[in-house]
Amino acid sequence: MDDRRAARAAAKRRRARRGAATATVSTVLAVVLVVWLVGSTPGWPDVRETFFSWEAFRTSFPDVLSGFWLDVKLFVIVELCVLVLGLVVALVRTTRSPALFPLRAFAAAYVDVFRGIPVILLVYLVGFGVPALAFEGAPSDPVLLGGIALTVSYTAYVAEVYRAGIDSVHASQRQAALAVGLTEGQALRFVILPQAVRRVVPPLLNDFISLQKDVALVAILGPLEAFRVAQIEAASTFNYTPLLAAALLYLCVTIPMARLVDVVQRRSRAA
């Protein structure tokens, strides 16, 4: 009896070890193959010099990094605004009172319009359009304008995420909340929203990964964020390595975020 159990455990361990070994070998082989294929292309020596120059990387990195701080600041602020405004739009859309119909219609139109416009177009429109209007107090700071464009666009996405979450809470929960004597507002605040928000954390984080990359679009308005700095450096030295440095910096924030999504998702599935 015990013998057989020990034998089964040993077999399981052997299988696991063999699996890990196979995975390692095949990964190494794949990498070697790709490196060899790319390295044997006729253009590789030039590409290595213009995209993977250690020298260019070292000299450009500090500037790109300081540009990246602007990206970080921008997406943290935009993210916070979007979290709040998206919730407001979603809540407006879930109201039932007939008196609020105009507001509801406006929120629906807002989502339809701004989800349907490419972010890059919106950055252009806001970035160059608003200053052209030349009204009293019109913002002219390109960072602010770019931030507004991103906020407007992402609020539409995030509002839909929240709304899906609110809709996913079963109607019987609202009924139970009302039955114990809560008002509609209290039912929303203490019963429906907490459940809805918990469910939408993973999709919200996914939207934020997109946002973290899309802050680079603000570059078209001129502020010296990472992508723009890298572009300038690349243009002046005829070497594209600074762009690679910028790409690495973006990955430094998006990959941890992606792992966070995995963790949150796994945890919510376990709960």
Partner: peptide, 30 residues
Amino acid sequence: RRRLGMVFQGYNLFPHLTVLENVVLAPVRA
């Protein structure tokens, strides 16, 4: 509704709250 208590076939407890929080929510908030 505050003056009546209602119990449903499907319990409809609030899943994000503990048992105690389920019970005290209405007395405290409503």
